[in-house]
Amino acid sequence: MHIPDSFIPLSQAIIYWIIALPFIFMALRWAGKEMDDTKVPILAALAAGIFAIQALNIPISMGTSGHMVGATLVAIIFASPWAGVLVLTLVLLVQGFVFADGGITTMGANILNMGVVSGFVGYYTFSALMKHKLSLQISSFVGAWLGLLVSALVCAVQMYLAGTFPLVPGLVAMGTYHFIIGLIGEGLITAIAITAIASSRPDLLENRSLARGVKT
């Protein structure tokens, strides 16, 4: 879902950057408050893992592929969507500048979609489901899936405003592909990773109560 430079006119790309900046600032402020020597290695491991897994495109049929985004996973572990914004910002910076994956002018939009929208929707969906006594696996699966789907729909609206995609066909195409990418690439991998961490290192989950009910 990395938007290249040519997909959004510069004037609009700048607006997305301006909207993204306060979110990046808040993410840095979160890190300033929450980071300590014990948490830095966790942040770095998650950032490196998410960069690598974003290079692993999974075929989803229809001649299309997709990969995990990871903001929801990071947000659940740190019990804060700002953690997801921070990690995705760092990953997108390296992807954009070093690997031409996602544009530079459009990086603001990419940070908004993949860091902010997918992470916030994913994390708060997850939290709401956990409150309703759903299992850790189901809550993380559905949260991650919905986060990705909604961010793809937001991206389709941006493509419409940019004059690049027509509105309804754009929403249908983006929605269809990312409905599926979200199931496999995002939901399943997030649920597996969270389950593995909750059973091997329950102390790592910022929100300790999450580890309850997971067989160790």
Binding site: M1, H2, I3, F7, A44, A45, L46, A48, G49, F51, A52, I53, A55, L56, N57, I58, P59, M62, G63, T64, S65, G66, H67, A152, C155, A156, M159, T164, F165, G170, A173, M174, Y177, H178, I181
Partner: peptide, 27 residues
């Protein structure tokens, strides 16, 4: 985490799908 990331990094060029991603396909 680094070991897992590096395993994925080494395997990705061989096993990752080269099909266009969702945004490119939609385009």
């Amino acid at each position: 985490g680094l070991v897992i990331a590096l395993i994925i990094a080494v395997l990705a060029p061989f096993i990752a799908s080269s099909d266009p991603d969702g945004l490119e396909s939609a385009a």
